[in-house]
Design a protein around this nucleic acid. Sequence first.
DNA 1: TATTGTTATACTCTATAACTATA
DNA 2: TATAGTTATAGAGTATAACAATA
Lengths: 156, 156
Amino acid sequence: MSAPERTQLDVSRLLNEAGHALTNRLAAALAEVDLTPRAQCVLIHALEEDRTQIQLAALAGLDKTTMVGTVDELEKRGLAERRASATDRRARIIAVTEKGRLAAEEGQRIVDRVHGDALAAFPAESRAVFLDLLGALALSRDEVAGPHAVRRPRGA
Amino acid sequence: MSAPERTQLDVSRLLNEAGHALTNRLAAALAEVDLTPRAQCVLIHALEEDRTQIQLAALAGLDKTTMVGTVDELEKRGLAERRASATDRRARIIAVTEKGRLAAEEGQRIVDRVHGDALAAFPAESRAVFLDLLGALALSRDEVAGPHAVRRPRGA
DNA sequence: TATTGTTATACTCTATAACTATA
DNA sequence: TATAGTTATAGAGTATAACAATA
């Protein structure tokens, strides 16, 4: 507890750069099977159980309007289908097709490989500490500011 | 070394979320002294020594065209000035004014505080491990893919 | 021929607003 | 009245292209 720890001058920048680096690698790797990280994420969550677009959007951290296009794409490529919900005629359940399931499973192997490779150089204990702390930091997401960052309302 | 370590299912997502969270907090805190993280970053680097716009852009991870607007803003607010380089008549040295120096120093205290707060809850050893690993991850930025992520050329 | 800084503009991404149909 | 999904579009951010001055 001496001078303000200059070692980590810019933690936020390190986080953003590391995040971009990994995301780019992930996107490049998933592109080999024609998937985006987002599509992969949605497919995986949709496989777990019957979920509506809004539920999937929340899980993926997307807006419902962004989700429309994402699902359009999945449907166009035959990886998933919109089905009427049995309990709410407004809602659409996103059902993953067999083709989609196979793609998602291969995608998941790729995701695991990329993440594994990124951390492979470090000892297991360090990885555990890192992931623990990182998880806690990520959780503190909406605790401080409002639900979302700045964005002026329409007529301003 | 058992099944693919499911613990860190999505490291890249954690990194991005933690990065956004911290960046938002940083932006909110710096807004109190009317600075953006970017302006703060440019001011600090410009204070260290005489630097041109392009040099500052590289240090801040910005495009030179983005830098123009950033410097415009700093100049308009009287925090910095464009000065002719003594050695290259094409180049502009970004000189920080006294007002800019004071703002940057206060900004740096805020940056240190926010970063300190974010990590305060964790033991020093964990922080050290975390920052070490994070720094290594961030360094691996351009090692894999090309210099920048996708962007179709103009006429495509 | 290459580079600094500039302008203009085009592209991507995402969210707001307004709407329909349900609840 | 509120919510799921849709559309259209506005806004923010950033990069490409083309240019003038200079190297």
